[in-house]
Amino acid sequence: MEVRTIKVFTTVDNINLHTQVVDMSMTYGQQFGPTYLDGADVTKIKPHNSHEGKTFYVLPNDDTLRVEAFEYYHTTDPSFLGRYMSALNHTKKWKYPQVNGLTSIKWADNNCYLATALLTLQQIELKFNPPALQDAYYRARAGEAANFCALILAYCNKTVGELGDVRETMSYLFQHANLDSCKRVLNVVCKTCGQQQTTLKGVEAVMYMGTLSYEQFKKGVQIPCTCGKQATKYLVQQESPFVMMSAPPAQYELKHGTFTCASEYTGNYQCGHYKHITSKETLYCIDGALLTKSSEYKGPITDVFYKENSYTTTIK
């Protein structure tokens, strides 16, 4: 009895394709271990004539594949690729409408935090270190965002349907971005203890939790000093293409032309909904596939993004 075979390709990165001759009487799992086709788990399936010449994702289970996976995804987590594939199996079914010149995501599976993050990423200057993220990001900007969303979920250790947080998501993504040249110098002034300067680099240099107003941050924000008295913390120097200011959701007025974009969060910790506000020729609110415009805006804002380049204080 002759062994019926077909020729397929296996890959971990969709760049390096490895030619395989597979036995049609055995499952993919018996031949390769966990195997995925377009995100779908085909591990328990036997090869079919229609699979001839198709590319299958496999887990990096030998040295060659491990090197290829690390170079593309910059992670050695053995569960990463499987999590990416199972997320992709959902995100490829989502709709990605162009809204006001940006790629958004039609609401499904509690994905409003991903839509808000995706919209924000198209408006701030950011370059990702893992080629996987950078490639998928370019495709997302062009309207094909399924891979990018699935990668975000995998890097953030999230599953489809789980509630997510924009600030946490951005923080994970910033860790995989090139923020080497970003720098922030802060000064804390206390009447009792004097003053202390701190220099922050990388992710810490672009994120701040405690106030939404970048102007206020430049002037000074009140913080408790270690001595128990009130101290003032203010920005001395900022070198970065953008800054992200966050605070627990509270009524906040966004003035046209003073910011790049913002995240609105309605609801409580267990259950809520994100919308995205962007400042173009007027203010726009993007909620999944829905767009509304207004000249002014007041609502429960939790993150505001500002364009920056270089700032030095005039406070002496």
Rank of each mutant, 00 (worst) to 15 (best):
E2K: 15
R4G: 11
R4V: 13
I6L: 14
I6M: 12
I6H: 07
I6G: 07
K7H: 14
K7M: 09
K7A: 09
F9I: 12
T10E: 07
T11G: 06
V12C: 12
V12L: 10
N14W: 08
I15K: 09
N16A: 08
N16F: 07
L17S: 09
L17W: 06
Q20P: 07
V21W: 15
V21Y: 15
D23R: 14
M24P: 14
M26N: 07
T27L: 09
Y28Q: 05
Y28C: 04
G29T: 05
G29R: 06
Q30M: 07
G33S: 05
G33H: 04
L37T: 11
L37E: 10
L37W: 12
D38V: 13
G39R: 06
G39S: 14
G39A: 15
A40T: 14
D41F: 07
K44R: 12
I45V: 14
I45F: 15
I45P: 04
K46S: 14
K46V: 10
P47H: 03
N49C: 14
G53T: 09
G53F: 11
K54N: 15
T55Y: 10
T55F: 08
F56S: 04
F56R: 04
Y57A: 09
Y57T: 10
L59Y: 15
P60S: 11
N61M: 12
N61D: 08
D62H: 09
D63S: 14
T64K: 14
T64D: 06
T64Y: 10
L65F: 13
R66P: 10
V67A: 13
V67P: 09
E68H: 11
A69H: 11
F70H: 11
F70A: 15
E71C: 10
E71R: 14
Y73L: 04
Y73T: 03
Y73G: 02
H74C: 08
H74A: 07
H74D: 07
H74I: 05
T75P: 04
T75Q: 10
T75L: 06
T76S: 10
T76F: 13
P78D: 15
P78K: 13
P78M: 08
S79E: 15
F80Y: 04
F80L: 06
G82T: 13
R83H: 11
Y84G: 03
M85C: 11
M85Y: 15
M85Q: 10
S86C: 13
L88A: 05
L88V: 06
N89T: 08
H90L: 14
H90P: 04
T91F: 02
T91V: 12
T91R: 04
K92F: 06
K92V: 11
K93L: 13
W94A: 05
K95V: 11
K95D: 09
Y96G: 05
P97H: 07
Q98W: 06
V99G: 05
N100H: 12
G101W: 05
L102Q: 05
L102T: 06
T103R: 06
T103K: 04
T103H: 06
S104P: 02
S104M: 05
S104R: 03
I105K: 02
I105L: 06
I105H: 04
K106V: 12
D109T: 04
D109R: 04
N110K: 03
N110Q: 03
N111I: 04
N111V: 03
A115H: 02
T116N: 11
A117R: 03
L118G: 05
L121M: 12
L121T: 11
Q122P: 04
Q122W: 04
Q122F: 04
Q123W: 04
Q123L: 04
L126D: 01
L126C: 09
P130G: 00
P131T: 05
P131H: 03
A132N: 04
A132T: 04
L133H: 01
L133F: 04
Q134N: 12
D135Q: 13
D135K: 10
D135W: 09
D135F: 09
A136L: 04
Y137K: 03
Y137C: 08
Y138G: 14
Y138R: 14
R139T: 15
A140R: 02
A142C: 15
E144I: 07
A145K: 01
A145G: 13
A145T: 04
A146H: 08
A146E: 11
A146D: 10
N147H: 09
F148I: 11
C149K: 02
C149L: 09
A150L: 03
A150P: 02
L151S: 03
L151I: 05
L151E: 01
I152G: 02
I152T: 15
L153A: 04
A154H: 04
Y155S: 02
K158T: 04
K158P: 00
T159H: 15
T159F: 10
V160I: 09
V160T: 06
V160A: 12
V160S: 04
G161P: 04
E162H: 05
L163A: 12
L163R: 14
G164K: 01
D165Y: 03
D165K: 04
V166G: 02
V166P: 01
V166Q: 04
V166R: 02
R167H: 05
E168L: 15
T169N: 02
S171A: 13
S171F: 09
S171V: 10
Y172P: 02
L173W: 01
F174Q: 01
F174T: 02
Q175K: 14
Q175P: 08
Q175C: 07
H176L: 13
H176P: 01
H176A: 05
N178L: 05
L179K: 06
D180C: 07
S181G: 09
S181I: 09
K183M: 14
L186N: 05
L186E: 12
L186D: 06
N187T: 10
V188G: 04
C190D: 02
C190H: 02
C190I: 03
C190M: 02
T192G: 13
C193L: 01
C193V: 02
C193Y: 02
G194E: 04
Q196I: 10
Q196K: 13
Q197T: 11
Q197N: 12
T199V: 14
L200M: 11
L200P: 03
L200V: 14
V203H: 10
E204Y: 12
M207H: 05
Y208G: 07
Y208C: 09
M209E: 08
M209I: 09
T211C: 13
L212A: 04
L212N: 01
S213I: 01
S213D: 12
Y214F: 09
Y214L: 11
K218E: 04
K218P: 01
K218W: 06
K218S: 05
K219M: 12
V221H: 08
V221T: 07
Q222E: 12
I223H: 10
I223E: 14
I223L: 09
P224C: 15
C225Q: 00
C227F: 00
K229H: 09
K229Q: 14
Q230R: 14
Q230C: 06
A231M: 05
T232N: 09
K233Y: 07
K233Q: 08
L235G: 00
L235A: 02
V236F: 07
V236I: 08
E239T: 12
E239A: 07
P241H: 07
F242D: 01
F242T: 01
V243Q: 00
V243A: 01
V243L: 07
M244K: 03
M244E: 01
M245K: 03
M245F: 15
M245W: 00
S246M: 00
A247C: 08
A247H: 06
P248E: 09
P248K: 14
P248N: 06
P249C: 01
A250F: 07
Q251D: 12
E253A: 12
E253T: 15
E253N: 12
L254M: 03
L254V: 00
K255H: 11
K255N: 08
K255D: 06
H256T: 09
G257V: 02
F259K: 01
F259H: 02
F259N: 04
T260I: 15
T260P: 01
C261H: 00
A262I: 00
S263P: 02
S263Y: 00
S263V: 07
Y265A: 00
T266H: 08
N268C: 10
Q270F: 15
C271V: 09
H273D: 00
H276Q: 03
H276L: 05
H276W: 09
H276A: 02
I277T: 01
T278C: 15
S279Q: 05
K280M: 10
K280F: 12
T282R: 08
T282C: 09
L283F: 10
Y284T: 08
C285G: 04
D287L: 01
G288Y: 02
A289D: 11
A289F: 05
L290A: 14
L290M: 15
L291W: 13
L291N: 08
T292P: 00
K293F: 09
Y297D: 00
Y297S: 02
T302Q: 00
T302G: 00
D303T: 01
V304A: 00
F305N: 00
Y306E: 00
K307M: 13
E308K: 06
E308Q: 07
S310M: 15
Y311P: 06
Y311H: 09
T312M: 14
T312F: 14
T312H: 09
T313I: 11
T313M: 11
T314G: 14
T314P: 12
T314Q: 12
I315F: 08
K316N: 11
